[in-house]
Computed example of a mutant assay.
Amino acid sequence: MQDDPVVTRLSSVYPELPPGERAVVRVLLDDYPFAGLGSLRSLAERAGVSPPTASRLFDRLGYDGFAAFQAAVRDGARDRSRLHEFVTRSPGTDLPAGDDPVARRPEDGSSAVRQAAGELRAGLEGTLAAVPEPLIETVAALLAAARSVWALGGPLSELAAEYLVRQLAALRPAARRVPDTASARAGTLLDLGPPDLVVAYDFRRYCPGTARFARAARVRGARLVLVTDAWMSPLAAEAEALIRLPHEAAGPIAPLAHEIAVTELLLVATAARLAPAGRLADLDALTQTL
Rank of each mutant, 00 (worst) to 15 (best):
P234K: 13
C207F: 02
R212M: 13
P208R: 13
E248G: 04
L245V: 03
R220E: 06
P208Y: 02
P255Q: 00
L235W: 05
R220K: 13
S233T: 04
R244T: 12
C207T: 15
V225R: 07
G251I: 08
L245R: 00
R212A: 15
T210F: 03
V227L: 14
G221L: 05
D202K: 00
P255K: 02
A237P: 02
R205T: 15
R220S: 05
R205D: 07
G221N: 04
A250T: 04
L245D: 03
E240W: 01
I253V: 15
P234S: 07
L256R: 08
A214N: 03
L224P: 10
F203T: 04
P255N: 00
A249D: 10
F213C: 08
A254F: 13
T228E: 06
R204G: 00
L245T: 05
T228S: 12
Y201C: 08
A200W: 00
R212T: 15
A211P: 13
R205A: 14
Y206V: 13
V227F: 08
Y201M: 09
P246A: 05
H247W: 13
M232E: 15
R215Y: 01
A257G: 04
A211D: 11
V227P: 00
A230L: 07
L256S: 10
V227A: 09
F203K: 02
A254I: 12
A200H: 01
V219W: 04
G221S: 01
G209F: 06
A236L: 09
A200V: 03
R244I: 00
R218H: 11
P208N: 05
Y206K: 06
A217P: 12
R223P: 10
A216G: 06
A236K: 10
Y201P: 00
A236C: 08
P252G: 12
R218G: 12
R215N: 06
P252R: 12
W231S: 14
G221E: 02
A236V: 08
L224K: 10
L235S: 03
A211T: 15
A211K: 13
A250S: 06
V225N: 03
Y206Q: 07
G251Q: 03
C207Y: 07
R220Q: 13
S233W: 03
G251C: 07
R205P: 15
A230H: 12
P246W: 08
A241N: 03
I243R: 09
L235R: 00
R212E: 14
V225A: 05
R212F: 14
W231A: 15
W231T: 15
A211E: 15
L226Y: 03
P234L: 13
R212C: 02
R218D: 07
E240P: 03
A214G: 09
R204S: 10
F213R: 05
G251W: 09
Y206C: 07
A214K: 04
I253G: 03
F213W: 12
A217V: 13
V225T: 01
R204V: 10
G209Q: 12
P255C: 02
L256V: 09
C207K: 05
A241D: 05
R205E: 12
A217G: 11
A237K: 11
P208A: 08
C207Q: 14
R212N: 11
A250V: 05
A241M: 04
M232Q: 15
A239H: 04
